[in-house]
Design a protein around this nucleic acid. Structure first.
Lengths: 230, 230
DNA sequence: TCTTGTCCAAATGTTGACATTGACCCGATT
DNA sequence: AATCGGGTCAATGTCAACATTTGGACAAGA
């Protein structure tokens, strides 16, 4: 008897490898928003050819992390309020759909995994870490929902926003926000509970609100930094 | 005095050129769903290098027109009912958002252009053409709405579905559907009118229904072909 | 007959060299 | 001073050759 699904062991090319490394470098702050990424530099640093780097950069551009123009190279995206509004608007629409579809199809095992993720988040509320772990769990929680929704196109659309969301939230971490953490966990707890009850009606509203809540927390912080004290 | 916006004359590379040609070839039926696209063949046919073809294929893959696997080449997507359900589910969510946002920001000039597009569609209802023109106008109508929404990310997400929608609807044309045309125009007319009144509340519902209506018409036809007469 | 192993051809993945472009500098001009 | 025009060069766009992988044909063994 063959297993129903096998862990995908698909081999990856150098381009994907390069994309991963560059993405990490951006998240680590090595390339700040607005910085130019030169193909030759990256090719030498990663010890691959320019072609592979080029392909990797194209992937990151489709993730929205980079912007490129004809013969003018690629740069890391800026973090303007407009960009944030755009990303979170679309994300809210996707999240609404994903959560509803997930409610119809989610399995018991997936529900358990969601619970344990929320539990792990709960531990991070009081932890004195900088919040990177909490952020990773946050994204992971939503990844699980998109997977549970079982819609390839929906997942693709989400992956076109995921990295941007990560980058945005990362900037929020730097700005420091204490009391937001507990509310974050509470919201995820609510979503997980509603999923278990398969309360589609309420989920549509709550999922959208959850995203808008994150957006407000982010935009508020950014506005405070730009205009206010420092 | 310089014009506020200039027709984007940004120079394009060979990759985009190749992508356009290949996309057209697929829409023209030269490459049927499921057909394999070989890089060397295309490179010779288009008289560009394999690298450019490769980049173009990657673009079309991100549009969802192609599927590719490691060292196994790229093929035109299949037209399964599941795929259609996926695409139209996400499209409904996006369309809902786009129409609402457009209602807030649409200008008088844009409204006029929408009207004239619907008018042109009306002429195609009775025309004896095969419906390609009607389909092009349909897509154009929705393009205008996404542009009016003024959200770059939303537009990107739509462009990740657009070609697939086109391909799906194209198959519907071949199956022939007479009375659907008039209903199609009527629905677009309603949306245009609601946009003019900026009736956001109703628009959210109608825009979603419009997509689901198109989906039903399509799935119904396909199911009929697969199981029914022929 | 079914499985397993080896080889081969065809296609893709990868690379470094060559061609082209756009930003920058700087002097001439109005 | 501001603008225009040409030259320069670093960086990207493009290409053709080389390396690697896949799937199938085919034969040997259980």
């Amino acid at each position: 008897m063959t297993p129903r699904t096998i862990g995908k062991a698909q081999r990856r090319g150098l381009a994907e490898e390069a994309a991963d490394r560059i993405r990490e470098a951006i998240f680590s702050g090595l390339f700040a928003p607005g910085a130019a990424l030169r193909e030759v530099e990256l090719a030498e640093a990663l010890d691959v050819s320019r072609g592979s780097v080029r392909e990797g950069l194209a992937m990151l551009e489709h993730e929205g992390l980079l912007q490129s123009a004809w013969h003018r190279g690629t740069r890391v995206i800026d973090l303007t309020v407009t960009d944030i509004e755009e990303v979170y608007s679309v994300r809210a629409a996707l999240e609404r759909l994903a959560t509803c579809k997930a409610a119809e199809r989610v399995t018991a095992a997936e529900l358990d995994r969601l619970d344990s993720t929320v539990a792990a988040m709960g531990e991070q509320v009081t932890a004195r870490s900088e919040g990177h772990r909490l952020l990773a769990l946050d994204i992971d929680f939503h990844d699980q929902i998109y997977h549970a929704a079982g819609n390839r196109r929906l997942l693709d659309a989400w992956q076109g926003l995921r990295s941007q969301v990560y980058l945005f939230q990362l900037s929020r971490i730097r700005l420091g926000d204490e009391d937001y953490r507990s509310r974050l966990v509470a919201e995820h707890l609510e979503i997980a509970a509603l999923l278990r009850n398969r309360d589609t009606e309420t989920l549509a509203r709550v999922a959208e609100d959850h995203v808008h809540s994150a957006r407000r927390a982010l935009v508020g912080r950014m506005a405070g930094e730009l205009t206010g004290r420092r």
